[in-house]
């Protein structure tokens, strides 16, 4: 009896410590969020001036400058705009961490078709074979999940740009009662599985900027949103063999029952 009580005391104490630590972590995370936000917000003003004044200089003095000096101005502008894109992405990324999720039932199939139709508008010049499988209704924040799908689908479009016939498939696997795992598969550039752990990091890029443009925040955004939905992300691929990205989400109640009834 004595021993049992001592053990219970110990467990209580450990639980208390764990609770304290979780609270500390949450506070640190919040602080980091507001830090990221203010850094990126305050960085924009001076950058706007760099772009604004370079453009004025370009307009006002271009007839006086030789080709080399004009190139210098163009380089300043290009770099400043690139930095602007990075800051915008970082801001958007930090907003995802801070904003509340509004969870409703989301028809994934409809969402995916919507996104593909939208992105298809910009890729009319390319030969892309789209394949969209049946997708269930799940529970989540529609606008956030839309961002996940937009990021994954535009990645697939981007990394298949060198294929004369691109194939992009969106479907779902591993259906069970509570969870759905959606995948986006392409036959594009792929990646080395050795670096799979870097895929979802902020500003991590596995390809050269000259080869595929982008800031390196897309998959970090995907991961953050899916984590906020208590889901998981993963990627599979091989160099020049295409890539598949998976994300899991909790199913909506009704949809879960429907699947359970299926033979």
């Amino acid at each position: 009896m004595e021993q049992r009580r001592r053990r219970e005391d110990e467990i209580r104490k450990l639980n208390q410590e764990l609770g304290n630590r979780a609270a500390d972590l949450e506070a640190i995370n919040k602080e980091l969020e507001s830090f990221t936000y203010s850094v990126s917000h305050d960085l924009r003003a001076p950058l706007r001036h760099v772009v604004g004044y370079s453009e004025m200089l370009q307009r006002q003095a271009s007839s006086l400058l030789d080709e080399k000096s004009q190139r210098f101005i163009r380089t300043i502008l290009d770099s400043a705009k690139k930095m602007g894109n990075l800051i915008d992405d970082l801001l958007a990324f930090s907003k995802i961490g801070r904003s509340e999720t509004r969870k409703t039932e989301v028809d994934l199939e409809q969402l995916v078709k919507e996104v593909v139709a939208e992105i298809g508008q910009d890729t009319k010049s390319r030969d892309i074979a789209w394949k969209i499988g049946a997708l269930p209704v799940c529970k989540g924040d529609r606008s956030m999940l839309r961002l996940v799908v937009v990021n994954l689908v535009s990645n697939a479009v981007k990394f298949t740009s060198m294929r004369t016939q691109a194939e992009i498939e969106i479907g779902c696997v591993n259906r069970n009662k509570k969870e759905v795992e959606v995948f986006v598969r392409d036959n594009g550039a792929g990646f080395d599985m050795q670096y799979a752990n870097k895929l979802f990091g902020v500003f991590q890029r596995l390809h050269l900027a000259e080869q595929f443009e982008g800031t390196g925040i897309g998959l970090a955004t995907v991961q953050r949103i899916i984590h906020r939905h208590d889901g998981k992300v993963r990627g599979e691929g091989a160099v020049d063999q295409g890539a598949t990205f998976y994300f899991s989400l909790p199913k909506a109640q009704e949809s879960a029952e429907r699947t359970a009834d299926a033979p």
């Binding site: 001036h49 604004g52 004044y53």
Partner: peptide
């Protein structure tokens, strides 16, 4: 309040 922004806007 930022003089640079004022100048750019005026231009």
């Amino acid at each position: 309040d930022d003089p640079n922004d004022v100048e750019l806007t005026l231009m």
